[in-house]
């Protein structure tokens, strides 16, 4: 064999040592020596070796701290962990600084991604309101984000939408009906509690905000129809809009024609055909539930849902 070997060739050779500057193999090997070449070869940083010694020490410290954190957790010494974490964080920051010094000039200070060109200047609740109005039915944050991105080109963060409903409820409680609309809940037909993860508009009738077993499907189909109609009106859809339409179409029998393409007219026809099947039953359920709810719930509850009746339920 031509390869360089440092181990003996007997039955139980010594473990090979590849690190030039350390001799212990029981320690976790770290990023040095050969590694810097790696980073160089990937074109990421060329002048690393100058500071190698101090950086080496920092790396040893960092990997040592990682092992210590794991040990502490494994041995049930949770109390130690925050301190070690802080030390690790500090070491990483020193390392970051070291890296910055080596890299020299501040070429990297520019912000990473400029705001998307189509970013809307409207407040978030307005943007959500627009999307919900377009869909015409209660929707989950993920769908709202997808529709917004497809039609308005901007970005919404779906995590922020979750807190939106709470803010709206607070605002309504402090000054009821002070705003032209509120983003509120959809209610479950059986208990009138707020349905997990759905957003609706307060100006919609309570029927429309009631969710029975068939309502998610009905709302999906009617949403598909409204989106397709919108595309028909506005003409040539962009790639993101086509993609969204296609996503809808794949889940409606007879709506998608071929891979990656869906005509609005085909979506509308197919969705209407299925809607026909569910609409009457769903409408009746929603209407009955809404009527009962209107009699029993106050304004806040009608918009944001009743408290679950746990005590009553467990007594039955």
């Amino acid at each position: 064999m031509t390869r360089h070997r440092t181990g003996s060739t007997g039955g139980h050779p010594e473990p090979l040592l590849f690190r030039r500057d350390r001799t212990s193999v029981t320690k976790s090997p770290s990023l040095k020596g050969s590694c810097w070449q790696i980073l160089e070869s990937s074109g990421e940083c060329a002048s690393f070796c100058r500071m190698a010694e101090t950086m080496d020490e920092l790396e040893d410290l960092i990997s040592g701290l990682r092992v210590q954190i794991r040990r502490a957790l494994a041995n049930g010494q949770r109390a130690e962990v925050p301190k070690l974490r802080a030390e690790l964080h500090a070491a990483e920051q020193r390392w970051d600084t070291g890296l910055q010094e080596i890299e020299g000039s501040d070429t990297g200070q520019a912000p990473l991604a400029p705001l998307p060109s189509g970013a809307s200047l409207l407040p978030m609740r307005e943007q959500v309101h627009q999307v919900l109005t377009l869909l015409g039915a209660p929707a989950a944050p993920k769908l709202i984000v997808a529709v917004h991105e497809a039609f308005n080109g901007g970005e919404l963060v779906s995590a922020k939408l979750t807190s939106l409903r709470r803010d709206e409820e607070r605002s309504f409680r402090s000054a009821p009906f002070a705003r032209p609309y509120y983003l509120c809940s959809a209610l479950a037909v059986d208990q009138w509690v707020s349905v997990r993860g759905l957003l609706a508009v307060s100006t919609w009738s309570l029927d429309r905000r009631m969710i029975g077993p068939l309502s998610p499907r009905v709302d999906f189909l009617s949403g598909a129809i409204r989106l397709a109609q919108h595309v028909e009106r506005t003409g040539d859809p962009g790639p993101q809009t086509s993609r969204l339409l296609w996503r809808f179409a794949t889940n409606i029998p007879g709506a998608a024609e071929s891979f990656g393409s869906a005509r609005p007219a085909a979506i509308i026809a197919a969705a209407r055909a299925e809607l026909e099947v569910h609409d009457a039953a769903d409408r009746a359920q929603r209407k009955a539930a809404a009527e009962a709810a209107r009699r029993r719930l106050d304004d806040v509850q009608q918009l944001f849902g009743a408290q679950p009746l746990r005590a009553v339920r467990s007594a039955d």
Binding site: A188, R196, V277, H278, P308
Partner: peptide, 16 residues
């Protein structure tokens, strides 16, 4: 086609 019912039986909240 008529079968498209969806029953959400997840916990309604943390106290469920």
């Amino acid at each position: 086609t008529a079968q498209a019912h969806y029953h959400d039986l997840n916990p309604a909240d943390d106290d469920d």
